[in-house]
Design a protein around this nucleic acid. Structure first.
Length: 416
RNA sequence: CGGGGUGGCGUAUGACGGUAGUACGACUGCUUUGGGAGCAGUUAGACCGAGUUCGACUCUCGGCACCCCGACCA
């Protein structure tokens, strides 16, 4: 991608009323456009990051047998009424112009829809277990959208649901999902803490959250640092502590961001929507379900919150919009040579499947190009200038390091 | 949903009950190129509604939007 062709531009300053770091940097860098409070459009740079996060998630969820599908976003009343979740205030309701009452809700979670779908195909213990997931926009009427992308009214979510004939089977999958989640967050450059929590409107049982320690977070957790696990304030009581076998004194209070959660949902949804199977003995039983969610935009925002400096974002390698940010600095009387030299490097990188953002803008001062590279935050910055041209090399700098080094042209591939 | 704050070119701001100004950005042209460059020209703005007033961007009321705190939640 050539910077000169990127239709977005960076901003020198963030809007004053945005106080969250993720909002400031993502807006300044042209990663996202804020349409309304808690409603963001992903611009080309941001969409690249989000897509990479999606692919990391896909790989790990596919690895534990999740089957990807894509469900309807408009959810008819008939699906939500049986579980008593039709008229909840998290919903945005949809109706046609002139119609009296809403007959659809914009999907804010898909237990009902997938349970209803499954009921059509699942009838024997032989059909179980299985799991299916989607990556889709969820709509939630948040009382208070806040903190940039961290709490939105519309957000991309990976929602995985698993279906089982027995509690043991669910427990086994729950553990697999936990490990997949830890891998996902790790690959996204986040240190997530496995946390005991409550289930809100989804279940009465204990659930587990994946929390990333950060001051901007809206959760309070008590961390058991030996285990790298924690307990959420909402269940930080005798029952919760007993469940874990932990003592209050051993825990440290932290603010944190919830980047994912996993729920044991029992048979609530299967019973309400008629998802039963026949077991080995011929008995008809409700399917036991688990649900597992990750907010993609929230991962992106969390990464920015925990990985930036005063100049901009520092993307982890796996989810950076580009691996390399190539800058060319022209100089009077040698523009053509430098441009040709840089173009060649750009083309070589592309040939070698290196993702590169090439700042080929000719009317920008060096300082601005450097500032943009720092702001956008790709892991590796390459500079091509008169200096480097003379030595048949390029200057290499890692976004998270200070050192500059000259690398011979022939050696670049080995250094990326 | 309760409380607080804010509302003017894309961004940041000055002044003012009486002609909306400045800087940055953007655009055009020329020059310039190792940490946000120079000259010239151009573009673009008072959230909505009602009231007070000879006159409202300014004052009053209502609404809406956005930000923050709380409650609630991925």
């Amino acid at each position: 991608m050539k910077f000169s062709q990127l239709f977005t531009k960076t901003l020198r300053e963030a809007p004053t009323d945005e106080t969250a770091i993720n909002a400031q940097l993502l807006i300044r860098g042209g990663f996202v456009f804020k349409n309304s409070a808690g409603i963001y459009s992903y611009l080309p740079l941001g969409w690249r990051v989000l897509s990479k996060i999606a692919n990391v998630i896909r790989e790990e969820i596919n690895a534990i047998g999740g089957q990807e599908l894509f469900m309807s976003a408009l959810v008819e009343k008939k699906y939500m009424e049986p579980t008593g979740r039709w008229n909840l205030d998290v919903g945005y309701f949809a109706k046609g112009l002139g119609e009296e009452e809403a007959s659809f809700v914009m999907g804010w979670s898909h237990e009902e829809v997938l349970t209803a779908i499954s009921a059509r195909y699942i009838s024997s213990y032989k059909d179980l277990p299985f799991s299916a997931y989607q990556i889709q926009t969820k709509f939630r009427h948040e009382a208070r959208a806040k903190s940039g992308l961290l709490r939105g009214r519309e957000f991309m979510m990976k929602d995985l649901y698993s279906f089982h004939a027995s509690q043991e089977s669910l427990n086994e999958y729950y553990e697999k999902a936990k490990n997949a989640y830890l891998k996902i967050f790790n690959r996204c450059g986040l240190k997530a803490v496995y946390t005991l929590a409550a289930g809100g409107i989804f279940t009465d049982k204990f659930t587990h959250e994946f929390q990333v320690v950060a001051d901007v977070g809206e959760d309070t957790i008590y961390v058991n640092e030996d285990k790298n696990e924690a307990i959420n304030k909402e269940v930080f009581d005798e029952r919760g502590l007993k469940h874990l076998g932990w003592k209050k004194e051993d825990l440290v209070e932290k603010k944190s961001i919830e980047v994912g959660n996993i729920f044991d949902q029992g048979t609530k949804y299967s019973e309400a929507l008629g998802l039963y199977f026949t077991d080995e003995g011929g008995d008809k039983k409700p399917v036991i379900m688990g649900a597992y969610g990750i907010g993609l935009g929230r991962i992106m925002a969390t990464v920015v919150e925990v990985s930036s400096d005063d100049k901009g974002i520092i993307w982890p390698e796996n989810i950076a919009p580009f691996r390399v940010h190539l800058i060319t600095l022209n100089e009077q009387n040698s523009e053509l040579r430098i441009t040709n030299y840089a173009n060649k490097i750009y083309e070589d990188l592309i040939k070698n499947n290196v993702e590169v953002l090439y700042d080929d803008r000719e009317d920008k001062a060096p300082g601005e190009k450097f500032a943009d590279a720092d702001l956008i935050g790709c892991p590796i910055r390459l500079v091509v200038s008169k200096k480097t041209l003379e030595k048949d090399s390029v200057e290499l700098k890692h976004r998270n390091k200070k050192e500059l080094e000259l690398v011979a042209l022939s050696d670049i591939k080995n250094r990326l």
